[in-house]
């Protein structure tokens, strides 16, 4: 092709055009094949899921509204009790929020240590960087429910197993995000501190932390949002808080739907409230940083 291009400009335009068209066609073919594969995967996946489900998709579709309707109608009949029920379940809500808050605090501290020990240029023991990275990968990969269930067996039900489980996962997840931020930190303050004889923890505390704090706090807030949901879910498997009350109310079935409705309202309100608060502060933090 290069030879013809040198000798005859006219043919070269034609050959470039034809090779471009061939490339476009090949890309379209690949794109089409990928799309086809995706559609096949979705359809067959849906069929398998539908088969292995207890109730079919098409049978269940018109029943989606039944349960919410039952709950709402019963709650509406007993609407006078609703404020009382909300007050009754408020302590459970506080417990759910406490689990999320404590585990976020512990997780942030753990993620901070993991990230600083696992970042090139900052690590105290550079040889151990892969160890700390794998450690945070593994902590991140463990779903909270695994640790929570095992700890419930050992420690008994209550908020502590959920707190530990969420804290471990949070530390792993934040360890990765934090270390991506810390990689971009300016090393000059660290070197300056090192020249004055500062210890490793002083260098990190005074040299790195002020640079990365806004990002870390922002990630921490995002994690807090996620952890509220996680702590509600873990309650459902026996770890206390709002989820636990929800499971009890649900197990009772009709007759206690007003309680279920009160818990739904509390949970929904809490999640939306903390989403808004956290996104407000996160926006402020990231805006303050943008140069």
């Amino acid at each position: 092709m290069a030879d013809t291009a040198l000798s005859a400009p006219n043919t070269s335009v034609a050959s470039i055009q034809s090779s471009y068209m061939a490339q476009v066609q090949r890309r379209r073919l690949y794109g089409g094949l990928t799309l086809l594969l995706f559609v096949v995967l979705m359809v067959s996946g849906f069929t398998i899921a539908d088969e292995r489900n207890a109730g079919g998709f098409w049978d269940g579709l018109d029943q989606i509204g039944d349960y919410p309707a039952d709950v709402l109608s019963e709650a509406w009949e007993k609407r006078a009790d609703l404020p009382g029920l909300i007050a009754k379940f408020f302590p459970a809500l506080v417990e759910t929020i406490n689990i999320a808050a404590v585990s976020t605090l512990i997780g942030v501290a753990g993620g901070l240590v993991l990230s600083l020990l696992g970042t090139r240029g900052l690590a105290k023991w550079p040889r151990l960087i892969p160890v700390f990275r794998r450690l945070s990968d593994i902590m991140r990969a463990i779903p909270e429910i695994v640790i929570a269930l095992v700890l419930i067996f050992v420690l008994g039900g209550g908020p502590v197993p959920a707190m530990i489980a969420i804290a471990i996962h949070t530390a792993g997840a934040l360890g990765k995000l934090f270390s991506e931020v810390a990689e971009n930190a300016d090393l000059k303050p660290v070197e300056g501190l090192a020249s004055t004889g500062a210890t490793w923890s002083q260098r990190m505390l005074l040299g790195v932390l002020p640079q990365v704090a806004p990002n870390y706090v922002s990630y921490g807030l995002l994690r807090f949002e996620i952890n509220i949901r996680a702590s509600a879910i873990l309650g459902f498997v026996g770890a206390g808080g709002l989820g636990y009350e929800l499971r009890n109310a649900m197990a009772w079935g009709p007759g206690r739907f007003d309680e279920a409705a009160a818990i739904f309202i509390l949970l929904f309100g809490t999640i939306v409230f903390f989403d808004q608060v956290s996104s407000h502060y996160r926006n402020r933090l990231t805006e303050g940083q943008g140069q």
């Binding site: 849906f46 398998i48 899921a49 539908d50 292995r52 489900n53 207890a54 109730g55 079919g56 998709f57 269940g60 579709l61 029943q63 989606i64 039944d66 349960y67 919410p68 949901r229 509600a232 879910i233 459902f236 989820g243 929800l246 649900m250 739904f264 949970l267 929904f268 999640i271 939306v272 989403d275």
Partner: peptide, 27 residues
Amino acid sequence: DFVRGVDALIWTVVLARAFGPGPLTGA
């Protein structure tokens, strides 16, 4: 905002009533 706020936990509970236990409900 609404579907996000209701959270997977409540959706799971509600959907499990309609579709029964299984992977489809989770999906």
